[in-house]
Amino acid sequence: EQYVVVANYQKQESSEISLSVGQVVDIIEKNESGWWFVSTAEEQGWVPATCLEGQ
């Protein structure tokens, strides 16, 4: 499942990744806490779901 990044995010923990507007990410896991585990071409990590929008 692919989502587009709609807000920049700077990682704050080692388990997170930074996002840039316009990036496309694959969703691996959706957590009810509002944090999703995603994959980019370069890395995987947790990001806030509020930064993502379905395609």
Rank of each mutant, 00 (worst) to 15 (best):
E1A: 04
E1R: 03
E1C: 11
Q2I: 04
Q2G: 11
Q2K: 11
Q2D: 04
Q2A: 06
Q2P: 11
Q2T: 09
Q2V: 14
Y3W: 05
Y3V: 11
Y3K: 12
Y3L: 06
Y3D: 08
V4T: 15
V4E: 14
V4M: 03
V4D: 09
V4K: 15
V4P: 04
V4Q: 13
V4G: 06
V4C: 13
V4W: 06
V4L: 15
V5A: 12
V5C: 10
V5G: 04
V5Q: 00
V5M: 04
V5N: 00
V5D: 00
V5K: 03
V6R: 13
V6S: 11
V6W: 05
V6Y: 06
V6P: 03
V6C: 08
V6E: 04
V6M: 08
A7L: 10
A7T: 14
A7P: 01
A7S: 12
A7Q: 10
N8C: 12
N8R: 13
N8T: 14
N8E: 11
Y9Q: 02
Y9T: 05
Y9N: 02
Y9H: 04
Y9R: 07
Y9G: 01
Y9A: 01
Y9S: 03
Y9I: 01
Q10T: 12
Q10D: 06
Q10E: 15
Q10R: 11
Q10M: 03
K11L: 04
K11H: 15
K11N: 05
K11W: 03
K11C: 08
K11S: 11
K11P: 13
K11A: 10
K11G: 13
K11V: 04
Q12C: 07
Q12V: 14
Q12H: 10
Q12L: 08
E13L: 08
E13D: 10
E13K: 13
E13F: 07
E13M: 13
S14Q: 04
S14W: 08
S14F: 03
S14R: 11
S14K: 14
S14L: 14
S15Q: 15
S15D: 14
S15T: 10
S15R: 14
E16T: 08
E16W: 03
E16H: 08
E16Y: 01
E16K: 08
E16D: 07
E16V: 00
E16C: 03
I17K: 02
I17F: 02
I17L: 12
I17S: 03
I17E: 00
I17M: 12
I17N: 02
I17T: 10
S18G: 15
S18D: 03
S18Q: 04
L19Q: 01
L19G: 01
L19F: 04
L19W: 01
L19V: 12
L19C: 13
L19S: 00
L19E: 01
S20F: 11
S20D: 05
S20V: 11
S20I: 09
S20P: 03
S20N: 15
S20G: 06
S20Y: 09
V21E: 15
V21N: 05
V21Q: 12
V21M: 11
V21C: 13
V21T: 11
G22K: 01
G22H: 02
G22S: 03
G22R: 03
G22T: 02
Q23D: 13
Q23A: 05
Q23I: 05
Q23K: 08
Q23P: 00
Q23T: 11
Q23M: 12
V24N: 13
V24W: 11
V24E: 14
V24K: 15
V24H: 06
V25Q: 08
V25N: 00
D26V: 08
D26P: 00
I27H: 01
I27K: 02
I27Y: 08
I27V: 15
I27N: 01
I28R: 07
I28Y: 03
I28E: 03
I28M: 09
I28N: 07
I28S: 05
I28H: 12
I28P: 01
E29N: 14
E29P: 00
E29T: 12
E29W: 10
E29G: 07
K30Y: 14
K30W: 02
K30T: 13
K30H: 04
K30C: 04
N31V: 08
N31T: 08
N31L: 11
N31F: 06
N31Q: 07
N31H: 10
N31A: 10
N31G: 14
N31M: 13
N31C: 14
E32H: 09
E32S: 11
S33I: 04
S33T: 11
S33A: 10
S33P: 03
S33W: 04
G34I: 03
G34Q: 03
G34M: 07
G34A: 07
G34C: 03
G34N: 03
G34R: 05
W35D: 08
W35A: 08
W35C: 11
W36I: 09
W36H: 04
W36V: 14
W36G: 01
F37W: 08
F37M: 11
F37Q: 14
F37D: 04
F37I: 08
F37A: 08
F37T: 03
F37G: 02
V38L: 02
V38M: 01
V38D: 02
V38F: 00
V38I: 05
S39Q: 12
S39G: 10
S39N: 13
S39M: 13
S39V: 04
S39R: 13
S39I: 05
T40K: 12
T40R: 15
T40N: 09
T40P: 02
T40H: 08
T40C: 07
T40I: 10
T40E: 05
A41E: 15
A41N: 06
A41F: 10
A41T: 14
A41V: 09
E42D: 15
E42K: 12
E42Y: 08
E42W: 10
E42R: 13
E42H: 15
E42P: 04
E43A: 12
E43G: 14
E43K: 08
E43S: 14
E43H: 13
E43P: 01
E43Q: 15
E43I: 08
E43D: 15
Q44D: 09
Q44K: 10
Q44I: 07
Q44H: 11
G45E: 00
G45V: 02
G45A: 02
G45C: 01
G45I: 02
G45S: 00
G45Q: 02
G45K: 03
G45W: 00
G45D: 00
G45H: 01
W46F: 12
W46Y: 12
W46M: 12
W46K: 06
W46T: 04
W46A: 02
W46E: 01
W46L: 07
V47P: 00
V47Y: 04
V47F: 07
V47A: 10
V47T: 03
V47G: 03
V47H: 00
V47D: 00
P48D: 06
P48M: 01
P48H: 03
P48K: 05
P48W: 01
P48T: 01
P48I: 00
P48S: 03
A49P: 10
A49V: 07
A49E: 06
A49D: 07
A49L: 13
A49Q: 05
T50I: 08
T50C: 09
T50D: 10
T50H: 05
T50E: 10
T50Q: 08
T50F: 05
T50V: 11
T50G: 13
C51G: 02
C51Q: 04
C51A: 10
C51T: 07
C51V: 10
C51E: 00
C51F: 07
C51K: 06
L52T: 00
L52C: 07
L52M: 08
E53M: 09
E53W: 03
E53I: 05
E53C: 09
E53P: 02
E53D: 11
E53A: 13
E53Q: 14
E53G: 13
G54Y: 12
G54K: 06
G54L: 15
G54S: 12
G54N: 14
Q55G: 07
Q55N: 03
Q55H: 13
